[in-house]
Structures are given as structure tokens and as C-alpha cells.
């Protein structure tokens, strides 16, 4: 596969390591009332979509960017690649 890195252009997927669903960016609030349950769902449950899947890749053998890649798990077609830090900021994860 080829991942079109937003800063570096197309790169072979072997330069990256894969983490999983981009929902792993949505770490719950530790002081919420049902924090343990929220963390359990955050850490363990997955939509596991057959189709469009937003997922995290890390440019380990490159510039160390974490990327949010939108990829179809049925065809492997990639429709967008963004810097995870941009996504995180956009989603309001300030600190």
C-alpha cells in the first residue's frame, strides 16, 4: 500500500506502523463519574467497520508523524490522509 503523507507525499506503507481505529484519539476524561467504564469502552471496543475506516498510522521510519488515514477495509482504497495533530486540534483536544 501507499500512504500519501500530507507533508512528504506518497510513501510505502512499510515505512509506517499501524495502531488501529482513530477513535483511540478520544481518550476519556479521567475524572468523569463512570471513568472506568468509559476507559474500558475506549480501550477495548471497536466499530471494526467493513468499509470506510479512519485509522492511525505512525511514520516510524520517517518524520514520526501520526496520521489519520481514511481507508476502505474492503478495498484498501485510501481516500484521505491527515496529520493526527491537526485532527486532534480540530476536534478540540486542546491539551
Amino acid at each position: 500500500m501507499i500512504i500519501n503523507h500530507p507533508l512528504l507525499g506518497p510513501r510505502d506503507a512499510t515505512e509506517f506502523s499501524y495502531l488501529g481505529d482513530a477513535s483511540l484519539m478520544h481518550r476519556p476524561e479521567w475524572q468523569s463519574d463512570d471513568a472506568e467504564n468509559q476507559f474500558y469502552e475506549y480501550q477495548y471496543l471497536r466499530d471494526n467497520k467493513a468499509g470506510i475506516h479512519r485509522e492511525l498510522w505512525y511514520h516510524e521510519q520517517g518524520d514520526r508523524s501520526w496520521l489519520v488515514v481514511t481507508r476502505n477495509t474492503l478495498t484498501h482504497e485510501i481516500s484521505s490522509v491527515e496529520l493526527a495533530s491537526d485532527v486532534a486540534r480540530r476536534e478540540g483536544r486542546s491539551r
Binding site: G20, D21, L45, R46, D47, N48, K49, A50
Partner: peptide, 16 residues
């Protein structure tokens, strides 16, 4: 499993 159990409204601790 993920696909089929989604029909029952369940999310699983599984990735395909």
C-alpha cells in the same frame, strides 16, 4: 464477527 454482531447492535473487543 464484528459485521454480524453489529446487526445485533453490539460492538466487540475485536478487529478484523
Amino acid at each position: 464477527s464484528g459485521r454480524v454482531m453489529a446487526q445485533a447492535g453490539m460492538r466487540l473487543p475485536i478487529e478484523t
